[in-house]
Computed example of a mutant assay.
Amino acid sequence: MCALRTHSRGKIDLKQGAVNLRPHDRARAWVIRIILWVILVVTLAPLLYVVSASFSSTDALSSASLIPLHATLANYVNVFSSGFLRWAWNSTEVALVVSAAQLLITSTAAYAYSRLHFLGRKYGLMVLLLLQMFPNSMAVAAIYAVLAQWGLLDRLWMYMLLLIGGSAFNIWLMKGFYDTIPIELDEAARVDGAGHFRILMSVILPLARPMLAVVFFLSMIGYYSEYILAGTVLQSPSNYTLGLGMYNLINTQFAQNWGLFSAASLLSAIPLAVAFGFLNPLMARGLTAGATKG
């Protein structure tokens, strides 16, 4: 009855419901709020130091005052003369190309595991996931030896090709979403004469757009900031990604440019923020898909 009054009378009864909470429910709500506030402060504190250092006139990462005494935009001006734009373009290109390629591989492979019956279907994806559990750092020496032998080091396209192969987790994620799509839709399309390709393009993918957005954005985050494999394959400054280029800003022999590094860190978040803004409506539906079923 309380729920009906809340639905019919809106905010007034919502406020009354908050006042009429039982004591232990009210205490639990405050405990949750305090925990969230603590997590928020702990999460934002390092970011505040980065913002402060980016406006500081010194190269120190932290100072006695969180607000710089002599704030300046010199770090943001100098960051564009350090090769930042080239690094950002390389990272954005790698993230977009690899994420798009993995989206193509993921959507088709997940359809095969979800809808087709073939030898090795039951354990094939599990084997891929087991192989993905081993970190890339374990294969760095072998990758370097092979690429050096074939003269393929310091090539951005080869770096992208190496990254495209790691899509087992995305296939597993997409397969789980395909499994929630009723098989009756496939059967209805098959009655109309549609094959597997037409079913995938006209039935499955339009319904899977939220999960496609999730897979694309998560892949983009991972490959935009990838460092270990990039440090192995890429060698010339013109091919550096953001991870490699920004590492050189604080790895100089005589000084560590923390102010310049902080400004570059904040600017490097812009492409991901733009992508999140465009994909957020679809991602919200994709991440909650399957939470309520029936």
Rank of each mutant, 00 (worst) to 15 (best):
M1H: 12
M1L: 12
R5S: 13
I12F: 13
L14R: 12
K15V: 14
Q16Y: 06
V19G: 02
V19D: 06
N20P: 04
L21C: 05
R22L: 10
P23M: 03
P23R: 07
P23V: 05
R26V: 06
R26C: 06
A29F: 12
W30E: 06
V31S: 08
L36T: 06
V41C: 10
A45N: 06
L48T: 12
L48Y: 09
A60M: 11
A60H: 10
L66D: 11
P68L: 06
A71Q: 11
T72N: 05
N78C: 01
N78H: 09
F80S: 07
S81V: 04
S81I: 01
S82N: 07
F84K: 02
N90W: 09
T92P: 09
V97Y: 11
A101V: 13
Q102A: 01
Q102G: 03
Y111A: 03
A112Q: 03
H117A: 09
H117S: 11
F118E: 11
G120F: 14
R121A: 14
K122C: 07
L128Q: 10
F134I: 15
N136G: 15
S137F: 08
S137Y: 03
A139S: 14
V140Y: 05
A142F: 10
I143N: 15
Y144H: 11
L147S: 12
Q149M: 05
Q149K: 14
G151Y: 13
L152W: 15
L153R: 05
D154M: 03
M160D: 08
L161K: 00
L163D: 03
G165N: 06
G166C: 01
A168R: 07
I171N: 09
L173M: 15
Y178F: 14
I183D: 08
E184D: 15
E184P: 10
L185W: 10
D186S: 08
A188S: 15
R190W: 11
G193A: 04
A194W: 04
F197C: 09
R198L: 09
L200I: 08
S202F: 01
V203G: 03
P206I: 00
P210T: 02
M211G: 07
M211N: 07
V215R: 01
F216W: 08
L218H: 01
Y224F: 15
I228F: 12
L229K: 00
V233A: 02
Q235G: 04
G245D: 03
G245L: 03
Y247R: 10
N251L: 02
N257F: 11
W258H: 06
L260K: 05
F261N: 09
S262I: 10
L266K: 08
L267H: 10
S268I: 02
A269I: 09
P271I: 06
L272I: 14
A273N: 02
V274I: 15
G277Y: 12
N280D: 06
P281A: 00
M283P: 04
G286N: 03
L287K: 01
G290K: 03
G290E: 07
A291S: 15
